[in-house]
């Protein structure tokens, strides 16, 4: 390369969008996760908006405080208590995820692994709770096209929205397990960056975030 070409190259690389700088101040991996999260937010936003449309155009809507009353092992009806517990568990698993990121940036492998394990545990309990809830509502007679509470779209939206969220939790658990194994084997230590843990963390927090809105709009309102 002649001298002018080298100078030209240098000029491009030094410009804001020339490829030599990070205009968003993050690595491409992290930026791609953010872009994915935005697109996923659109998917869930569309689900919830459609649910809103169905709900306001239906003649009535079942009272969720009367539908979701099951709680395992206690033998009495407890409106919404089980869902509240699920919310609590997911918020806690988001918290332990944040601590795992915090520990991994301090290069504390044991602690990071411990908190990742707790996050996986929380997510697994959440999924099992959801299985219980699905089992219960299906046992009550709810399907995609009909349910005993009168409005067929009620159970259709329930299965679609919580099912889609559950699928995200499941994918998150797989990602978390892979990440935990990588931490254990010293993959990030060798690479010199624990950013991978942080990126999986972003995804997991997003799953928690979606649940906050599903919980609010589907169960509480």
């Amino acid at each position: 390369m002649n001298h002018d070409a080298v100078l030209e190259q240098k000029k491009i690389m030094e410009s804001e969008w020339g490829g030599g700088k990070a205009p968003f101040g993050v690595s491409w991996r992290k930026y791609m996760m953010w872009i994915f999260i935005v697109s996923d937010a659109f998917t869930f936003g569309a689900f919830l908006a459609a649910y809103g449309l169905f709900r306001v155009t239906s003649a009535g809507w079942p009272d969720t405080y009367e539908v979701f009353t099951a709680f395992p092992f206690i033998g009495v009806e407890a409106p919404m208590l089980f869902v509240a517990m699920m919310t609590f568990i997911l918020i806690c698993s988001s918290f332990t995820m944040a601590l795992a990121v915090s520990a991994s940036y301090k290069n504390d492998r044991t602690k990071a692994l411990k908190f990742l394990g707790l996050t996986i545990l929380g997510g697994s309990i959440f999924i099992l709770c959801q299985v219980y809830e699905w089992y219960h509502i299906i046992h009550d007679g709810a399907t995609m096209t009909s349910n005993p509470w009168g409005v067929p779209l009620f159970s259709a939206t329930f299965f679609m929205i919580t099912g889609f969220h559950g699928l995200h939790v499941l994918s998150g658990l797989i990602l978390l397990t892979i990440t935990a194994l990588k931490v254990k084997r010293g993959f990030y230590e060798r690479r010199g960056s624990y950013e991978g843990v942080e990126i999986v963390g972003l995804y997991w927090h997003f799953v928690d975030l979606v649940w906050v809105f599903v919980f609010t709009f589907f169960y509480l309102l």
């Binding site: 968003f24 993050v26 935005v38 937010a41 936003g45 919830l48 908006a49 809103g52």
Partner: peptide, 23 residues
């Protein structure tokens, strides 16, 4: 960085717009 904050948060206005339009 502010550029990242905007590029994440501003598109979310579209979700609010969709919800408002449908409702």
């Amino acid at each position: 960085r502010l550029s990242l904050i905007y590029s994440i948060l501003l598109p979310l206005i579209l979700i609010v717009a969709l919800a408002v339009a449908l409702l």
